[in-house]
Simulated assay, not measured.
Amino acid sequence: MPSSRKRPPRDRDPVEIHTDFFLVCMFGFFHLSGFPSYILQRVKKSHGCLRLCCQTLVINQVPFRSLMEILGMLELEAIREVRLHHRSRFCLQSDLIQFFTQVGQMSNLGNLIMSPIPWEFPAYGFSLLSPLGHLQKLHLIADCLSDQLQKMPR
């Protein structure tokens, strides 16, 4: 009976689950199933007793709202590499800035690969990445940044 279960004492450290996530939209539909779905449900229901640590996060055509929900369940400081492959032109500039804000919290991120970036993205958005002291590789494929390239390194 769920109501008769005792919750673990709060003085213990949470259990960490380490895994890589490959989030892929197939045929225009995104649906998590199997292991990733199970783990995310368990983390959500754990009331902080489980921490989901992901070293590599691959995102391919995932709807933006689903992506933000999943990022909210991950321990962002555990992520070492993010690969974003997104061709949709239906995301707003504010969505990309929200994503960059989340990426800016990934304090141990070493590799950020984004291809292609179809949005008209303002150069000031890259300032959200300034907290990334461990970033070693930034790989961007975009055709709409050419007039802003000189602002990006700042």
Rank of each mutant, 00 (worst) to 15 (best):
M1H: 13
P2I: 13
P2C: 08
S3F: 12
S4N: 07
S4T: 15
R5Y: 10
R7Y: 13
P8V: 08
P9T: 04
R10A: 15
R12S: 04
P14S: 00
E16C: 14
H18Y: 12
H18E: 15
T19K: 13
L23W: 06
L23V: 11
M26T: 11
F27Y: 09
F27P: 03
F29Q: 10
F30R: 08
H31A: 14
L32W: 07
S33R: 10
G34K: 05
G34D: 09
P36N: 04
S37K: 14
Y38N: 08
I39N: 00
Q41K: 12
R42I: 03
R42P: 04
K44Y: 12
K45Y: 07
S46I: 06
H47W: 08
H47A: 15
G48T: 09
L50K: 02
L52P: 10
C53G: 06
C53S: 15
Q55S: 14
Q55I: 02
T56N: 13
V58C: 05
V58A: 08
V58Y: 05
I59R: 00
N60M: 09
N60W: 05
P63V: 01
L67M: 09
L67P: 01
M68L: 11
M68N: 07
E69I: 05
I70E: 02
G72E: 08
M73S: 10
M73C: 08
L76V: 06
L76Y: 04
L76M: 10
E77L: 04
E77A: 06
A78V: 02
A78N: 06
I79Y: 07
E81G: 04
V82A: 03
V82K: 00
V82M: 06
R83T: 14
R83W: 07
L84T: 00
L84P: 03
H85W: 04
S88N: 06
S88A: 12
R89I: 10
F90A: 13
F90G: 10
C91H: 06
L92S: 12
L92M: 12
Q93E: 15
Q93T: 14
Q93P: 02
Q93M: 07
S94T: 15
D95H: 14
D95W: 04
L96I: 15
L96G: 03
L96P: 00
L96M: 14
Q98V: 00
Q98L: 15
Q98Y: 01
F100H: 07
F100C: 04
F100D: 01
T101D: 13
T101N: 12
Q102K: 14
Q102T: 01
Q102L: 09
Q102C: 15
Q105Y: 02
Q105H: 10
M106N: 03
S107H: 05
N108H: 14
N111H: 14
L112G: 05
M114S: 03
M114W: 13
S115H: 09
S115F: 09
W119H: 06
E120C: 01
F121N: 02
P122C: 10
G125R: 01
F126M: 06
S127K: 11
S127N: 12
L128S: 01
L128V: 01
S130H: 08
G133L: 09
H139I: 11
I141S: 11
A142M: 05
D143P: 05
C144I: 04
L145D: 10
S146T: 02
D147K: 09
Q148G: 00
Q148M: 07
Q148K: 15
Q150H: 13
M152Q: 02
